[in-house]
Nucleic acid binder design. Structure first.
Lengths: 231, 231
DNA sequence: CTTGACAGCTTACACTGTAAGGTTCATTTT
DNA sequence: AAAATGAACCTTACAGTGTAAGCTGTCAAG
């Protein structure tokens, strides 16, 4: 009757939304590789296995995180000029992917196949189709633009701004003496300045796509597709 | 006494070269995340800890693998036209990185800082500098080209050709009905056909770089740099 | 012979994801 | 009110990870 100290545990405290919020936090704090179900549980004030009631596995949780990010992606409407739409679409993807920087590398290598992700992919590919390139060229331009986009996201979130991965380090004097071009280029890549580089390449790709679109592809596109059957 | 001239090594059967060869094999067989020191040891017929006599940590071993790959990269000589040199340089990087596909994703996110890697990077940046863009534009073009390159390598070695990452799957009927653009684009991306897409984007970038190089950048480069100061 | 360095092995520890099964409690049914 | 149900959460356990610490066997030099 005196009912020993009963730890009041609200039974339905845990929810998918709470778990996902906490997961993003833990990932940012501990890094993607430092993340674990036990650390997530600690952040939530529960046991690791409790999370498995809401997600059958860690992979399912990660997938939910990706879905969430992609749901936040806004596809530009068709009231805008074509170039603008493609530009905004790519910048939007970059924006949502870099919102949780530590998680971004996961998105980059993730092969999306869930309905929410496929819906966004479908819209983005539709953007390229709207350029009137025909099916094959639309597909390849989408993919090529995606290459650039993924590389850019990766550099911004996991690139040299995070310091070297290498275990062996080279002194500043050696760098200046032996690798002057690396040092010279490095001056333009501090923790800031990603936008400038990214936009440069983005506009280059948009320029070329518009050129192809305007039919002025006698040399350009031909060179690209002529060269494409090396195996 | 005369035996002091040359030292017959023949000490142990393990060597860095053997370990690295075996590491590449195990990584290809088990996948990057399936690789472990114990599996590597099993492949070598020794115990896991024996490897630590040759590499102080797994990170050191990985670094040695990257160094090896980069040492195999051939920088095109300056006897060739500029565009050709840049093209070959990028294709060479792609070639060596995709030689061990399962290891490629590691290279892509690896921040190289060892002397062998820096030497190659220095040469590649030098290729861009040789374009006469000036220091800043050289650096940014190198980086932008690198974005595209990394994204392409990632797609080829860890992309959709490997099947979906997602745990939830969507049936073919649903795909055709709800995501027609995805299905349409997917037709051009089987396990083969990477070259064609990659070369298309590569030539686009080369076109633009030559255009900038030829001074015809009134709209192009200006648009890119004007837009680059959002923060 | 001894000595000492080298190369590889054994053990142990703190971590990981998660399978299997136990416990508690809100809700519904009787 | 009492009993049953099932969702939500916890405990334990296992096979795997990287690697620190220390041990063993081999071999060349003194």
């Amino acid at each position: 009757m005196d009912s020993s100290i009963k730890k009041k545990r609200a039974r339905g405290r845990l929810s998918r939304e709470m778990i996902e919020d906490a997961a993003f936090e833990v990932i940012e704090r501990e890094g993607l590789s430092g993340f674990s179900m036990r650390k997530l549980a600690a952040a939530l004030g529960c046991e690791a296995m409790s999370i498995y009631h809401h997600y059958p596995s860690q992979a399912h949780l990660y997938e939910a995180l990706v879905d969430r990010q992609m749901n936040a992606l806004v596809i530009p409407g068709d009231g805008l000029p074509w170039r603008e739409r493609v530009r905004i679409g790519m910048q939007e993807f970059r924006r949502v992917a870099t919102e949780h920087p530590a998680f971004a590398p996961f998105i980059v290598v993730y092969r999306m196949n869930s309905p929410p992700c496929l819906a966004k992919l479908n819209s983005i590919i539709g953007l390229f189709e709207a350029g009137g390139f025909g099916p094959e060229l639309s597909a390849r331009l989408f993919r090529a633009a995606g290459y650039y986009l993924m590389g850019g996201i990766l550099d911004e979130t996991a690139g040299y701004a995070k310091g070297p991965s290498a275990v062996t380090t080279v002194s500043s004097e050696e760098m200046a003496r032996d690798f002057p071009s690396v040092v010279a280029a490095g001056a333009y890549f501090g923790t800031t300045g990603f936008d400038k580089t990214f936009d440069l390449g983005l506009e280059m790709l948009l320029d070329e796509m518009e050129r192809i679109r305007d039919g002025a592809r006698a040399a350009t596109a031909k060179a690209g597709s002529d060269r494409g059957h090396s195996n």
